[in-house]
């Protein structure tokens, strides 16, 4: 087991717990009382349309946004409002693959992957480089790509570098923000497979937000649907087609008719 492999912990409670989380921007209520528990080692996927608050949920957990009401706990520790070294310590448990990969364009891909090890964990650069190359190999990228800059890569390759960066510190929790958006179906499936393989290897708890149902079915142990700031359904992946919830069924089958009405402005 490597230095950063997750330690086995007693199962005393959920890994992530959200209780009555509210977040608004001006008059726009984005999260309207979210309750969610994610157990250690579980893979939860949050589905929902654009603008329903999926990314905001992740950002609240990471401390990038502060909810107005409600509590968020990581390993039983309340994290709303913490900052500085405390926040850095909590965020040391996380890895994240951003929708746009968010690679640092002033660095090579190798330095991007090694960044969390050298800057976040204070690891020796040579050792960090070795680990970064290994993580890049795990996502199917060689040394030639490692020496390139992010600007030289396709969207799919950027996502793979982003995935390598997310798993490099072998985090306890990994967030995936729309991992397959903007990819062709084959590359989307490659990313899904890599996520499943890499997460299994690291043994992490994961939360993924997506509106790609193929991706959700492949990655998730449990799926939750977010609609108008509330979680309207949560259940095992294999029950989603027979859950009997109208909003979920409309979303899963991509139908125009149903309770979810798109707010289109008439010309």
């Amino acid at each position: 087991m490597s230095e950063f492999a997750p330690q086995s912990r007693p199962q005393t409670g959920p890994k992530i717990k959200l209780d009555g989380v509210h977040k608004r921007f001006g008059d726009n209520i984005v999260l309207d009382g979210i309750d969610l528990e994610v157990q250690t080692g579980e893979s939860v996927v949050i589905i929902g349309g654009s603008g329903t608050g999926k990314s905001v949920t992740l950002k609240c957990i990471l401390g990038l946004l502060t909810p107005e009401k409600g509590t968020i706990e990581i390993d039983g520790e309340s994290v709303v409002g913490i900052s500085g070294d405390e926040r850095d310590r909590i965020n040391g448990k996380f890895g994240m693959l951003f929708q746009s990969a968010a690679l640092f364009d002033s660095m090579s891909n190798l330095d991007n992957v090694a960044f969390g090890l050298t800057e976040g964990k204070g690891m020796d650069p040579e050792a960090a480089t070795e680990i970064a190359l290994e993580k890049l190999r795990q996502v199917g990228l060689g040394e030639n790509v490692a020496r390139m800059s992010p600007a030289e890569l396709s969207v799919g390759m950027k996502k793979r570098v982003g995935l390598a960066r997310a798993i490099a510190i072998e985090p306890e929790i990994i967030f995936f923000d729309e991992p397959t958006t903007g990819l062709d179906p084959v590359m989307g499936d490659v990313i899904n497979d890599l996520i499943v393989q890499c997460v299994r290897k690291v043994g992490a708890t994961t939360m993924t937000i997506t509106h790609d149902m193929a991706s959700a079915r492949k990655i998730a142990d449990r799926i939750a649907m977010l609609y108008k700031g509330k979680l309207i359904w949560t259940g095992p992946t294999d029950e989603i087609d027979t859950c009997g919830e109208d909003h979920v069924e409309q979303f899963v089958h991509g139908r125009v008719e149903g309770p979810i009405q798109m707010e289109l402005r008439r010309l």
Binding site: L62, L64, R89, N91, M96, G116, E119, G120
Partner: peptide, 9 residues
């Protein structure tokens, strides 16, 4: 945001 998630202020 990525910097923050990588424990870098």
């Amino acid at each position: 945001d990525a910097l923050t998630t990588l424990s870098t202020n």
